[in-house]
Nucleic acid binder design. Structure first.
Lengths: 216, 216
DNA sequence: AACAAACTCACGGTAAACGGGGTAAAACAC
DNA sequence: GTGTTTTACCCCGTTTACCGTGAGTTTGTT
């Protein structure tokens, strides 16, 4: 019987050790590489995958250099045959949605049982998808939450203005910055307040943060 | 040689498995209990510790029911002889400060090497403290960051007002709510703006969030 | 071509926030 | 028991935000 070739990636070394000890005990699997960043996985695949094709990459979401989302995207673009399984904390709905949109093959939270992880891996290697119930819950909840819908209901310009508002710029300053009339910005402000169902600048600011419009 | 009795607690089962496999391989240690919440550890100690004293509790910070901070506090109050080692992600300075204030015996981030974990445990069992360099860095950085200082520079009343401001209440509404003159609230508003070095409500709101004054 | 979004601008009014300047009693610390 | 911080209060002037209502123009879709 041919062993399935796996890569596992997580920046928490102890967790990586844990995964490794679970998977190395199974003779069906060969751990070809363990990595603490997505970049190392991508690099490895880009160089070696044609010679020695990998079956599955098990990866965390939060990683330096190239995170799990980006790694999954890279794999699904450049190495379509390689399956991906995300093993991470429970993330927000958007993360899950992004991953599924990018055709990830499975998602198991880190608080799952060992057995569920093994089931997930088997299922995926058979060519099916595997998502834990809690992940499906998050996904569905996200579908009907208004955060997501509201974000989509905002146009590009509205998001731009919202961002500047939350960055403490006044209407006049934003108008100057965008070469628009201050009346225009006032309109946006009004629309944002009614669309997001908030009362004032404080509510707008909170939404800007929630929607991830602010970096620093 | 008498084995040291350990308890490990983490709500991520796979990580727990990892820890277990690392520690169970060492014959110096006996894993008396693995738990996925702080409450279970506290309960166990409260009932059994007099008969069969535990030497060390290894715990995560983020856990349901009773988190690592609360668990550590409980242990240091009720079971002074039991050492505690936190193994968790890198947390903010305040978490680390709270833990050290509560006399935790060590802190190792989850991305540490297996060997460092073992070193930490040995050190602590010898009666010394062990903190990874990255944890010390976070601690020191927190000492000189202004977020912490600013938070302390705010009085109770100021925090209360700031919270209400960020909750989208107007000056008048806050005045009514706290049975104060609206002039008073205006003063607080001004002081907050100058203390926190922001320009307006948006900046105040961001600080309220950063300082953790808002729940939902 | 028709239609809907998205984007732009305008006016008038009320309410609120912002900025600068104060006073003063109570609580806490040294 | 003197000094500092906290809490609470006041006035005034200016700016900005908020609200309603409306309307032209561009852009993309079917």
């Amino acid at each position: 019987m041919k062993k399935h070739k796996l890569i596992i990636a997580d920046d928490h070394k102890m967790f990586l050790d844990g995964l490794l000890s679970i998977l190395a005990a199974k003779k069906e699997y060969e751990i070809v590489l363990t990595a603490n960043s997505g970049k190392n996985v991508a690099k490895y695949l880009d160089i070696n995958n044609s010679k020695e094709p990998i079956d599955l990459v098990v990866t965390d979401v939060n990683m330096p250099e190239l995170n799990g989302i980006e790694l999954n995207r890279h794999i699904k673009e450049k190495h379509q045959k390689v399956k991906t399984l995300v093993v991470s904390m429970l993330h927000d709905a958007m993360t899950v949605q992004t991953l599924t949109k990018d055709n990830v093959d499975g998602y198991v939270p880190k608080n799952a049982e060992k057995d569920e992880l093994l089931t997930a891996i088997e299922t995926i290697l058979r060519g099916e998808k595997y998502f834990s119930q809690s992940i499906k819950d998050v996904y569905l909840k996200g579908m009907f939450s208004n955060e997501q819908t509201l974000m989509q209901s905002l146009s590009k310009r509205e998001k731009e203005v919202l961002k500047l508002i939350a960055q403490e710029f006044t209407t006049q300053e934003i108008a100057d910055k965008l070469f628009l009339s201050k009346h225009t910005i006032e309109s946006y402000r009004k629309n944002l307040i009614s669309k997001l169902e908030v009362r004032n600048l404080a509510g707008l600011t909170k939404y800007a943060i929630k929607l991830g419009l602010l970096e620093e």
